[in-house]
Design a binder for these strands. Structure first.
Lengths: 215, 215, 215, 215
DNA sequence: ACTTAAACGAGACGGTACGTCGAGTCTTACC
DNA sequence: GGTAAGACTCGACGTACCGTCTCGTTTAAGT
């Protein structure tokens, strides 16, 4: 995304880019999405609030969604760095704890996720990006690759460890397995199909680990 | 949804409504969403294609999303009626077959769902509605209540039957259980997190029934 | 004007016409022109205010200007009848007094005209009709024939009497002569070129009678 | 007129204004008024014909009448410059000739005016503006101040010269005197009360100079 | 008095234009 | 050459009325 190196104009010189403007644009975009919602957030509005010319936005990003995506990635990275042991490779990732009790570890992480999903500063932009991604495949794939997949990979890692510890069957595909508890939460949140809670995610983990058929 | 009896104008007289225009608007809206995509579908475009004045749309619906929602509901109902034993109450519902083999029944239905999700005539509008619903809570809830939940209820029914047959544990909540295989498919489709296939949904059913922990 | 007997529909049956509606339409049209001005007076507005269907207006008149013209003619006739000795032929005409003093008679009538031009109930509709007539030749000619010319004819009559009395030269064309004092007043009023007053019209009469060259 | 510095938007920067667009708008407005008439001339039509966005019109003018007024002023100035000895101050004014024969001078100028009033390129827009001015006092006053009064002033000047030469009585008010021949012509033209011709204006001058009473 | 057809009130309809907003492009002046 | 500012063309918005077209419902003439 971003970086429209398609045959536009001469192609901007990134070394002369104004860091100040970039930050102001990120801040304005995120603030507006929280305050007035994504559909009413406009490029003109972002430019005005950031004290920036419209052209400066069009020079570096290709669309409103693109601006917001980068702003949100930036926000996530900042949050990651702030909140502690950021990973070396710049990923926004914490590892999932491994106390030896898989169920407890998953429940803990999912409870934290539930809490995060309720924080307006995260909810508004991520909802907006998710919505845009549903209808705009390119953005959707970027969103997944840059934000979602790295997080899911943490579950894959934890599940692999569990397989080695014998807590998960060896023939199970971890990438699919994680969806048993992650996707239901995602759908309830995204589509308002039902409320989310700590109890709910606990239940999901239990069902996912042991199935719903009689043992 | 629709029918904004809030203090708009005097409130139109539904008995005088033109059935012809309504149908033409549904057809135009669905066709445009398929052809040019939801964001480029405009009220003016729908009106022009339907051979209808813009005011006729604004008189009966409050937004583009609202038009499309009703158009899609109508389409679903028609499809249900066409395809066979429609329910008495106008519900768009088929029951899930009960051959006695729960796994096989679920796999069959999910395979059919995968196929449907790939039909452009259904995919374009439902994707558009889902996206809009993510960012517009009111529409989202209506979408769920009118379209999604009735379909999910069929799974609830089948799972309850399975509980009585002893194929699902009695302490399992069917409304949550169904999410183990429905939500992962939904998320992959909606967010392009990974490809969908018959094999994939088969696997989901197996994991959901028996869990991922060693038996 | 009015009575569009052109090949429209079957042609309405005037004998069954609702007198009540006609009056209500006249009243509404005149009131709206006074209250909101001619451009903001709409057919829908007149119909609503008169408690009448739009079709009832379109059935009997061909345009907004046409409605107002008849309404104003009706108003003029009423005013004429009310104010005294209406002429036999239904004309809205009083004769100009003939006291033997031409200058005094003309000044008196023009002073009365100045007063009438300041009465909002007359000013608003007649201004509207005059304006429409400037740009719509057909209406303009009707306006002149039905309203203006009958009034000017009174001056012609008075001037002819004056010619017989030797107060006006025999070789003067009365139809042109009257314009020397009527048109300046009309232009000042219509076009706001300068204020109008009794003194002003008195002066006009003096100049017109004796010229501006040295005697 | 124009320049609505009232609390609209931030107020556009006139130095950045596109001269090309302005000219194109003037040309389109005048052409449309001539071709389809004032009522059927629309802002959208002007914009389309001028190859200009609607917003560019709304940015610089407040109404259709305002556009046309400026277009016509511009046309008049151009005509003045083209046709000869334009005044220094940008006034659209020629002096009225002074051959020593007042009657002949006035008749010559009025004959020229009659001819001009028949030129469609002038007639259509000036009729439209006059009509609008009748019903819209603000525009009417601007029309008079910017277009009409400067022309009438020429008559005032000529009449004053005539007073000094002893051809007009000293106690006559030239501003009123000029109306004796100008206003009748104006009214016949504006309101279609009677045809205009060179003979007619000659007669007006004779009547105005010497009056209609016996000498 | 009863019938019946036209006028009537109401208002939905296909349209056109309104005046506004924002998109994305282009130009100007500044640093 | 990047930038703030903002004018530009363009397209869609949602609204107001236009003039036409049904709908029942009066209502007045002719049986």
């Amino acid at each position: 995304m971003a970086r429209n190196q398609s045959a536009r104009h001469p192609a901007p010189d990134a070394t002369r880019r104004s860091e100040r403007s970039r930050r102001a644009i990120y801040d304005a975009a995120l603030a507006l999405v929280v305050e007035v919602g994504y559909p009413k957030t406009t490029i003109e509005g972002i430019a005005a609030r950031a004290g920036v010319g419209k052209q400066t936005i069009y020079r570096w990003w290709s669309s409103k969604a693109d601006v917001l995506l980068e702003a949100f990635l930036d926000l996530s990275e900042q949050a990651a760095e702030t909140a502690g042991e950021a990973q070396a490779d710049g990923g926004a990732a914490y590892a999932i704890p491994d106390t030896g009790d898989l169920a407890a570890d998953l429940k803990a992480v999912l409870r934290a996720t539930v809490d995060e999903l309720r924080d307006p500063a995260f909810e508004a932009p991520s909802r907006a990006l998710a919505a845009e991604g549903v209808v705009n495949e390119e953005l959707g794939r970027t969103f997944v690759a840059r934000l979602l997949e790295p997080q899911l990979q943490l579950y894959v890692d934890r599940l692999r460890a569990a397989q080695e510890a014998g807590d998960v069957r060896a023939d199970v595909d971890p990438r699919i397995a994680l969806e048993l508890f992650v996707s239901p939460l995602a759908q309830r949140w995204l589509q308002y199909t039902a409320p989310i809670s700590h109890d709910y995610t606990d239940t999901l983990v239990d069902y996912a680990l042991h199935g719903i058929a009689p043992r």
